[in-house]
């Protein structure tokens, strides 16, 4: 259940960002989860629903996009996309692939309701 720790961090960062941008409301939260993190999207979703209680995210559904692993093969040099965490080149079966992406978990974006700036000059 490392999903719980991650959901708490997701909520913490989303709240901080919404406040920094003077958001009136948070409509939606999007997270990106790499396959190599082993995070189970369904568990993250459930943990998020608990972690957001009492925060400005109570009305904001979470959308999770799963990011495949991107890796470079040391033998054939090809950049490959993998949908499971076995780091084997699908073309030449070489091991020890260099991971380029799909090993992280991110707060991807927030959909916010913001006030239009007062008329006149702004930078």
């Amino acid at each position: 259940m490392h999903e719980w720790s991650l959901a708490c961090e997701l909520v913490r960062q989303a709240e901080t960002e919404a406040r920094r941008r003077n958001a009136l409301r948070v409509h939606a939260v999007k997270a990106s989860v790499g396959v190599l993190t082993g995070v189970v999207p369904e568990l993250l979703q459930r943990a998020y629903e608990m972690a957001r209680q009492g925060t400005c995210l109570e009305e904001a559904p979470l959308e999770i996009e799963v990011e495949a692993i991107r890796a470079r093969c040391p033998r054939c040099g090809r950049e490959v996309t993998l949908h499971s965490p076995a780091l084997v080149c699908p073309d030449c079966s070489a091991l020890g692939l260099e991971v380029l992406g799909g090993d992280g978990i991110f707060l991807a974006s927030l959909e916010l309701e913001v006030a239009e700036t007062a008329g006149g000059n702004h930078v």
Binding site: Q13, F106, L107, V114, E116
Partner: peptide, 17 residues
């Protein structure tokens, strides 16, 4: 701009958790 009006915007962040 009407200062009383609001609008939706997407903040693209990609913050590492």
């Amino acid at each position: 701009h009407d200062p009383g009006r609001t609008h939706r915007e997407e903040a693209v962040l990609y913050r590492n958790l």
